[in-house]
Nucleic acid binder design. Sequence first.
DNA 1: CCTTTCATGTAACCTGTTACATGATTGG
DNA 2: CCAATCATGTAACAGGTTACATGAAAGG
Lengths: 189, 189
Amino acid sequence: MDIQYAILGLLCWQPLSGYDLKKIIAESDLFYWSGNNNQIYNNLVQMHKNGMVTQEIQYQENLPARKVYSITPEGQGELTRQALSEPELPEIHRHFLIQLAWTDHLTTEQIDKLLAKYEEEIAVQFRMRQISPNLTQAGPNRTRRESYLWRQIAEKILADYERELEWIRRVRADLACENFQSNQEETLP
Amino acid sequence: MDIQYAILGLLCWQPLSGYDLKKIIAESDLFYWSGNNNQIYNNLVQMHKNGMVTQEIQYQENLPARKVYSITPEGQGELTRQALSEPELPEIHRHFLIQLAWTDHLTTEQIDKLLAKYEEEIAVQFRMRQISPNLTQAGPNRTRRESYLWRQIAEKILADYERELEWIRRVRADLACENFQSNQEETLP
DNA sequence: CCTTTCATGTAACCTGTTACATGATTGG
DNA sequence: CCAATCATGTAACAGGTTACATGAAAGG
């Protein structure tokens, strides 16, 4: 999945500046990009060259000028083409699971402390997404079908956090009650 | 999460060559790296310089020489240090959800076709992981606790595929029965 | 007074990917 | 005969990150 698809998608709702796009992408949790300047602005320049978008400079008093981009019919075509392309599998970087994979030289208490910290971080993310509706919750709602899809997307992301929480809690409970013997030979300095 | 942590982790079980590591990392689904030469070999050279690993060249007849790497006490220390570091949130690249987000100019049949293809791809991955135990299933099993952790990691990865399947099936069923009106103005060429 | 917001842009960097190169051996 | 496996390594590139630069205005 290309960031240009996401940009085209956002622009097909309404014209936006690079600055707008950057903020939307950075704050969304559907988009995994950091939303840094380089990527957004350079891609917009390239898409402009390719005729996917048009640029209109809006001068404002007391504020810097905005370059507002709109999608072209060619851009719409590209959006549809990519919407119909082969689905790609999700790529999940499970940093914590990798970390956990080599914790057997720690004490069970240390492992539980790690799990507790991870649980808290996930819980924070979960609660944040439960209360404050970000882009994902507030889609365009142009048709009933589109708002249905966006709701499903938002709920999937939320549900993933919930599953993660359930998993951590089960593992913590197991580690606590199953009374695994911890490796004695390696204690921390 | 650094690939060097994963390499140190694998080496703390047993000495391995770059070629071995490359294959393990490429075939695992806990590790998200492609397992390409450049990354593995360069990191091993760097880790050797930093004293994290030692190198032993094994000459073989009729086959190219192997450079077998072993973890050093400093490497062990680094592994423990990173095992105790702050947990990181998972990063999920939901390519398909992004694709799906802008499919409202397609017909409901086209969307269902996309979902069906995605469902099949996920189902393939799910079945593969259900039957053939890869690294994740076959951990080191040095202690009861370690093999418990590895089982939980493997089950989490499998469960994620299952949840994904359930989600797709629910969305497809909804789209089919709820009878959403599709956008009439945009049909495909 | 310092920080944030608006708004654009550049430079340096790091990670990771594909592709190439070597060269013998095994298997369909 | 062609492809894959073993085993190492290099080169080129793509993608994405942080950090920096400008400069005015608004807010605590």
